[in-house]
Design a protein around this nucleic acid. Structure first.
Lengths: 222, 222
DNA sequence: CTCCTGTACAATGTCGACATTATTAACGTC
DNA sequence: GACGTTAATAATGTCGACATTGTACAGGAG
């Protein structure tokens, strides 16, 4: 049989889920700016659905931390303080360490080629900031999704989306991309070698380096 | 002035938020059993509100991981597999480690007395399983809430609630309560001494010991 | 001119009803 | 008697309307 024995449930089946994805994308891609108010009536009109669907979608996006909903006051795109950005990066660094610790040595043999391919793609994208950010997200997602915990993966990726704009900022210079790429190289090497401790250390460093650069740029700009 | 300058937003202002708390309590206190279906109409009738409010409440409880909602199929109390229970404990152990690492030495001087008081209360509750579980939750919450990150605290407590029944199970024997109490004693000592590394290690061990016992009881029972 | 107050407006909160989909049970066939 | 099919039922999905609360502006007192 080609179809799996257990029925698959399409997460995107309901209308609010689809709306939530679109709202989330708009925020991550900086189309909706931090602090911007998101009125239910406007969104309902824009997407051609009722307010109830938009309402449920906004709650879903709130769960990802991308919007903040205040009672009687509506939703707005989450505006993080510098301290909160630092906090999120630090939590993500620890969770990423746990994920890569688990991943090291546990990666199925038929998946090692893909990991190496993703690393090569990353190194080929060194000269383009946007392309590098996408490649970095791709290899991150691969590692996290193969660490054996759906829960942990969702958590890490959610934190990643909340600080996506700052990660992009951090990867805007060639030097930083080279540093990031070198970190990834060390991490992949440790994973393939089955060195869990080194994988944990390297993955943490990877995220913390990104945090440091982003914070440096943030504090000197504004 | 007695009133604070900035307005406080009551999280429990809206109806769905109140309903969500009551549903969550019922699940954590094992009033609603794992796997049990939670029908919107039933809950709406039981709480005397409309289905829309119950719906939003269920989404909020889903965010805590206490219920699982499947499209077109409704909500049911989350039933965790043994692997998932292990997973959650392990993630919580790491996050708890991070929180206590931050807490060590950073605890305000006027809060040390309260921490010592909570530890003493824990030790006085050694002979009663339920009382010990409550005291354990109280000191956990204190530590986590003073670690400087609302986000991290919510995350840890959420995972704690998801596995509350297994923690209670693990603390059902006097020997285990003595072991737990000894772990807490070491942790508090490290926190007050400002030894961040030891606080991180001890807090992880605390959670992992609970996990090991719970898993042992789970696998031998069923 | 500034500040307070009250009113009009616009947003979210809550509800009941209809549409659509899953579930169950009855029925007929092999 | 067991299995597949179909119809009845009961659940969730979606919507529009009303109630309630926050917000902004105009007006007047100091």
């Amino acid at each position: 049989m080609a179809s799996p024995p257990q029925k698959t449930y399409d997460i995107y089946a309901t209308l609010p889920a689809q709306i939530a994805v679109r709202i989330g994308q708009a925020i991550v891609e900086n189309e909706f700016k931090p602090g911007q108010k998101l009125r239910e009536v406007d969104l309902a009109a824009a997407f051609g659905v009722s307010r109830a669907s938009v309402r449920e979608a906004l709650r879903a996006v709130e769960r990802e931390g991308l919007v903040t909903i205040l009672p009687q006051r509506g939703a707005q795109v989450t505006a993080l303080s510098v301290e909160e950005v630092q906090d999120i990066f630090e939590i993500r660094a620890h969770l990423m360490g746990l994920a890569c610790h688990r991943l090291a040595g546990a990666l199925p043999a038929d998946k090692t080629a893909e990991l190496e391919r993703l690393l090569e793609a990353l190194q080929r994208a060194l000269k383009d900031g946007d392309a590098y950010a996408r490649a970095s997200l791709a290899i991150s997602e691969f590692c996290v999704r193969h660490a054996g915990s759906r829960r942990l993966a969702d958590l890490i990726l959610s934190f990643g989306r909340q600080t996506a704009r700052y990660t992009r900022l951090s990867l805007s210079t060639p030097e930083r991309r080279r540093q990031s790429s070198a970190n990834w190289s060390k991490l992949v090497k440790a994973i393939l070698a089955g060195d869990a401790s080194e994988a944990e250390r390297a993955s943490r460093q990877l995220v913390l380096d990104t945090r440091d650069t982003a914070l440096q740029l943030l504090t000197q700009d504004s």
